[in-house]
């Protein structure tokens, strides 16, 4: 038990959320091992978004606990969870349209280093922050556009910035919410490559619709149906599970 604990990046115990009478998540107990590439799949309306919101602390859980790296964070604020090593991307871009990527990423790095509230120094003076931001953006194939206004970036680049921004928080656990959603075909491989190239010591929980991406990326898969954990297992196991197929039939025929 102790051994198992130490190797978990994320654990939820009986996590539930009700809105009025509607149970969006009920009794979800999920373990994500450290360094894992774990995918969470499920049909539309299965409660995936609610689950992420519970993990990140956007909404409080009705009952159950969230443990991050062996620490109970159920009552910890959103920012507190970020400081403890949890970062996320959004399915629909949530970026700072008026800022440039270098500013965006620099902001997150400065915040992480506790230098984000300095009011007497100039932005750009802190060379440690700027250098790290530049390196990260270059690695994420955003080097050429890092001085553009974010709103003017092509969509694929914005998706990359989503991931870069989360990585700027130096997460131990990264929640990727449909990273390739809506990316045009010609920019798609950039995003997929970046997801593949994420450092091994970062645990990734991928929430995804795209089975191709899930099966190529994940080493373990959990299936969420109607707010409940429906099945869990390795790629082989899940991809051949007739019940999972039944759930997805009509919804996503090629599974």
């Amino acid at each position: 038990m102790t051994l198992a604990h130490q190797t978990l990046a994320l654990q939820t115990l009986g996590l539930s959320k009700s809105f009025g009478g509607f149970r969006a998540n009920s009794d979800i107990s999920l373990c994500v091992a450290r360094g894992a590439r774990h995918a969470l799949i499920g049909p539309n309306g299965a409660g995936k978004t609610t689950f992420i919101n519970l993990l990140t602390g956007v909404v409080p859980a009705t009952s159950g606990t969230v443990r991050l790296l062996d620490e109970d964070v159920t009552r910890v604020s959103q920012q507190g969870r970020v400081k403890r090593g949890m970062a996320r991307t959004y399915q629909i871009n949530q970026l700072f349209a008026d800022l440039t990527p270098i500013e965006t990423v620099g902001l997150a790095i400065a915040e992480r280093e506790g230098a984000g509230a300095r009011w007497w120094s100039r932005v750009g003076q802190n060379s440690a922050v700027v250098d790290e931001a530049e390196a990260l953006l270059t690695r994420m194939k955003l080097g050429e556009v890092m001085m553009w206004r974010t709103a003017t970036l092509p969509y694929g680049k914005q998706r990359l910035l989503e991931i870069a921004l989360a990585m700027a928080c130096k997460p131990k656990l990264l929640l990727l919410d449909e990273p390739a959603a809506g990316v045009p075909e010609d920019e798609r491989h950039d995003v997929l490559d970046s997801v593949e190239a994420l450092p091994q010591d970062v645990t990734v929980l991928l929430i995804e619709h795209d089975m191709e991406l899930v099966f190529s990326f994940a080493d373990r898969i959990s299936v969420l149906v109607q707010g409940q954990l429906f099945a869990e297992g390795g790629v082989e196991e899940i991809s051949t599970d007739p019940r999972v197929k039944a759930v997805y039939l009509g919804e996503d025929a090629h599974v």
Partner: peptide, 25 residues
């Protein structure tokens, strides 16, 4: 307004949700 503090305000104004997700209280 040209300090990191000023920049973080702009970020808050631009996208409150994301600002909170990157750890800005």
């Amino acid at each position: 307004v040209h300090s990191p503090f000023g920049l973080s305000l702009k970020a808050l104004k631009d996208n409150h949700l994301r600002a909170a997700t990157i750890g800005i209280a």
